[in-house]
Simulated scan of single mutants.
Amino acid sequence: MLLAPPLWGVWAAAPYFHNGSVPKLMGVLDPAVDRPRIWRRVSAPARPDQDGQVVMGYDTDLARAYDFERLGWHYEELQCGQIGTLPFIDCDPLDGDAPPLPERLLTALYTEIALAWNLPRVDMLGMSNAQIEARKIYNTNEHSQGNQGHAFTAVLTDAERRAILEYLKTL
């Protein structure tokens, strides 16, 4: 039998869900907010002499990059087709109700071939800075990256959600 991990410090453990698809804890408690489809966490600012020349990691400065009100890292929401996103993964213009074509193909591949996810990734060799930056984008339309579900907290009032967040800050 597996035990759930303790909630100590959960307020600082963003992003949330098993796949990291929800950037803020408020999005866990209220499915209608803070569950963007495509998003990118804010990067650390480059030094003035490095601007545009280097790839910066995520901003970890709590004062600048963390939202203590909604409990999670600041992020930038992106739209379908925006630079750095993939058009047929972001939104499939051919069929809005069915899963996107790449997801259907990956599901078929992973269903038929055991451990296909563990194949070597040749696309990682010789990546440009722009390609590395694009990897910071979280797209919930990609295979197994969805942030839907977990809607049992939708019945809570805003005051109850706020009380839960304040309680979790004490852990």
Rank of each mutant, 00 (worst) to 15 (best):
L2V: 13
L3W: 09
A4G: 06
P6D: 13
W8L: 12
W8F: 12
G9R: 10
G9H: 08
V10K: 05
A14C: 10
P15A: 04
N19K: 08
P23H: 02
G27I: 05
L29R: 01
P31N: 05
V33I: 06
V33Y: 01
R35D: 04
R35A: 04
R35C: 05
R41G: 04
P45W: 01
D49R: 04
Q50L: 06
G52N: 06
V55R: 02
Y58M: 08
D59H: 00
L62N: 01
R64I: 03
D67F: 01
F68C: 09
R70P: 00
G72N: 07
H74Y: 11
E77I: 03
Q79Y: 04
I83T: 13
T85W: 03
T85H: 05
L86V: 10
F88G: 00
C91G: 09
D92T: 04
L94N: 13
P100N: 11
L106S: 07
T107W: 09
L109G: 02
I113W: 14
A116E: 11
L119Y: 12
P120W: 05
L125H: 07
S128K: 07
A130D: 15
Q131L: 10
Q131K: 12
E133T: 07
R135T: 12
R135P: 00
K136N: 12
K136A: 14
T140A: 14
N141F: 01
H143D: 05
S144P: 00
N147G: 07
T153Q: 00
A154G: 06
V155R: 13
V155Y: 07
T157G: 11
A159F: 01
E160W: 02
R161K: 07
R162L: 10
L165P: 00
E166C: 03
Y167L: 12
L168Y: 01
L168D: 02
K169R: 13
L171F: 13
